[in-house]
Nucleic acid binder design. Sequence first.
DNA 1: TATAATAATAGTAACAATTATCATTATTGA
DNA 2: TCAATAATGATAATTGTTACTATTATTATA
Lengths: 126, 126
Amino acid sequence: MAVTKRSKQRDAIVNELCQRHDHPTAEEIYLALKTAMPNLSLGTVYRNLNMLSEDGTIQKISVGGADHFDGNAMNHYHMLCSECKRLYDVSYPVIEDIEEKAVSFADGKITSHTITFFGVCNGCLH
Amino acid sequence: MAVTKRSKQRDAIVNELCQRHDHPTAEEIYLALKTAMPNLSLGTVYRNLNMLSEDGTIQKISVGGADHFDGNAMNHYHMLCSECKRLYDVSYPVIEDIEEKAVSFADGKITSHTITFFGVCNGCLH
DNA sequence: TATAATAATAGTAACAATTATCATTATTGA
DNA sequence: TCAATAATGATAATTGTTACTATTATTATA
């Protein structure tokens, strides 16, 4: 099921996701929009986030626990804080040739890659 | 809760995981051992896999859907097949200095990293 | 080698995250 | 304006995982 008709709900979800620079879960987006759209449904948030990540408008990131979403569709890397479980951008330059290089070590074709760093964010260190 | 006393169940789980080179989910390990240990409990499999990954004996890998486990505790990279959802090893040499290099692009301290490639495995391509 | 302390288990219930269902509403092209 | 149908809200169902508890197994020490 690809996106065809527009909806206020989807516009609000994309807008919210692109304005924030954290990487909220579906529920966090739902809670953020709930005030302005009191009868928004959590299922609608999930459905739209999935459609949007399938057609490449946004990114879905699985790191254990609830999935996180990222309004920045350009490939970039992340760090997961083991204390607060928040996900942060790591502006390390994307390794452009890693996919072509890796293909000889892999058993199939490669279409994309992600790098996730694990550690403790400054907020949790202090 | 760290491991102190041994158990046949945990030994079987570690043994199973180290013998196979796929990256089974908790349920796949449970099903594989169920024949030989008919009253093994799925909760026991989960509990042990978590204890073992916490003390670094095995690895837990989250890529969406059920978590996968890897008996090889050395850092190495993986590819997720978007067709069959199986996780494969990618023997691309580990980028030893990426964590020190990335720290200046990150907002905290880094303790480890993973690289996940996405694509389609040979089994699903043919 | 008994025994006492307690870690680990099986079985089950509870929980969290996500998806499916379906009647109603909103969007859009003719 | 209206018909076709995509999208929604509300809720039920499903999936993956953790928590609970009485019982069993392991292990250190007498």
